[in-house]
Every structure is written in C-alpha cells, then in structure tokens.
C-alpha cells in the first residue's frame, strides 16, 4: 500500500478502497471503508502524484498532542551504567499526500486501522496528554503487520547509579523518523535515563535496516521549525 501512485488509480486494502479519479484538470479523491464513504475531496487544478505512507501516530482522530506514550506490558529492568536494545511496537497511522509541481507534499487524508486511545502522563496541570499504546517488550525484532503496527528499536541507556525499572516511553512526534520496507516499518529511538523520575528520549535519523525507505512524515511536510524534538520524561519511567 505504501507507494507513490499516479492518478487515476484505485487501491484496495483491508476493507479500505482509495480511488483517485481524473476530471479534466481536477482530481477527485475518495476513501471508502466497508463500502461506506469516509472522505471525499475535490483537488482543483491538480495533476500531482499521490503518496501513501506511514506518518507519526499522533494525528487521529484529531490533533490533540504530539506525544506518543508506549506503555510496556511488563516492566524492563536495567542495571546502572548499562545499555540495552529492546523492541516495542507502535500504532500505524497512514497519510495520503499530494505532490505539487515543485515536489512539495501536502497531506490530504489520514487514517488508521489501529485502536486510538489517549492518556495523561504526569500531573494535571504540568503533564502531557499523550496518544496511548500498549506494547509488549521484545528483545528481538517482533513480527508486525505493516498496516497495523510498526516497531521501535529502543536503545535504553541507564546513566544513573541505580537499577532502573522502565514501564513506559514517551516519544515526541516532532523527532520521529519512520522508515518502511515492503513488509515492515520501524523507527530507531533512544532513551537516556538520568534518574528515577527523569529520562530523555530521542530518535535516530538512520533506518533500522538500510533497505528501508524514509517516510514523508506529517511534521516534516508542514515545513515549520519544531521547538524541540526530544521527549522529556520528567514524571517517572
């Protein structure tokens, strides 16, 4: 599904049908789910290509936060000064982009097959509303369905002088770099634990596998400078 398409075209995946029809100089974009129309757009004076690829999983059902909280199904313990790579899963959100003559991309539609939940991380007045996702903790690359889940290769570095129990990771969408192949998609991130209440998460600009393609993220296509790309976990691990 994740590819560049030249209108007119129709693709069908997982009960979703995406159709782009040409009407003179204009395009009509339609997305149907279970035979019911979910989105219909008229793209005036447009003949650009359509790009469909995974985007940061924090945009649906509406833009409420830029943070993803991955809740570990079982806590992971790490010794002081140690470093360990683990794998988590994350929900996939799909973005449909249209390219203009100068090669810039604009998002026209977003959808997901994953469950959407939100949670509060930290206190009511200073915490964060985060997109919530519960994930098992894997020590090897997990098997994921590319339309539903991606994987995060998380490098945990315990800079503190105590044994640490990690139960969650808060990740900032402004720093997310999603890479995808034919069957899987992933992100590479790191978590530096400073103390029991404080950790810093960040993303790597390198793909987990060199064969993977870089995704056109929504936050990249919006062309504004982010204030910060790191996730600061200041309300506990």
């Amino acid at each position: 599904m994740f590819d560049i398409y030249q209108p007119p075209f129709t693709i069908e995946t997982e009960d979703t049908v995406i159709t782009v029809e040409k009407h003179g100089d204009d395009l009509i974009y339609k997305r149907m789910f279970h035979g019911e129309e979910e989105t219909e757009l008229l793209l005036l004076n447009n003949d650009g290509d359509i790009l469909i690829n995974p985007i940061e999983p924090v945009n649906l059902p509406k833009k409420l936060t830029s943070f993803l909280l991955v809740d570990f199904k079982r806590p992971a313990l790490i010794r002081p000064g140690d470093r360990k790579k683990i794998y988590l899963t994350f929900p996939v959100e799909i973005g449909v982009f249209i390219s203009d003559k100068s090669g810039n991309h604009e998002v026209i539609d977003t959808f997901t097959y994953s469950k959407i939940k939100f949670t509060l991380y930290g206190s009511h007045n200073q915490g964060l509303i985060c997109r919530y996702w519960e994930s098992d903790v894997f020590t090897e690359l997990p098997q994921t369905d590319i339309l539903y889940e991606g994987y995060i290769e998380l490098d945990i570095i315990n800079d503190s002088s105590h044994m640490m129990e990690v139960t969650k990771a808060v990740l900032n969408a402004y720093g997310m770099k999603i890479y995808y192949g034919d069957k899987r998609l992933g992100m590479k991130a790191s978590m530096r634990i400073i103390n029991k209440l404080l950790a810093e998460t960040d993303f790597s600009t390198y793909p987990t596998t060199s064969r993977f393609k870089r995704s056109m993220e929504l936050y990249t296509s919006r062309k504004f400078m982010p204030i910060g790309t790191k996730g600061i976990m200041e309300f506990g691990l």
Binding site: D71, K117, F118, T119, L120, Y132
Partner: peptide, 11 residues
C-alpha cells in the same frame, strides 16, 4: 469506555 479514544487510560 474502552472504545472511546478520548476516554483517558490514565486517570
């Protein structure tokens, strides 16, 4: 409640 996206998991 579990199916409602905006019903927070925590609290």
């Amino acid at each position: 409640i579990d199916k409602q996206p905006f019903a927070l998991v925590e609290p």
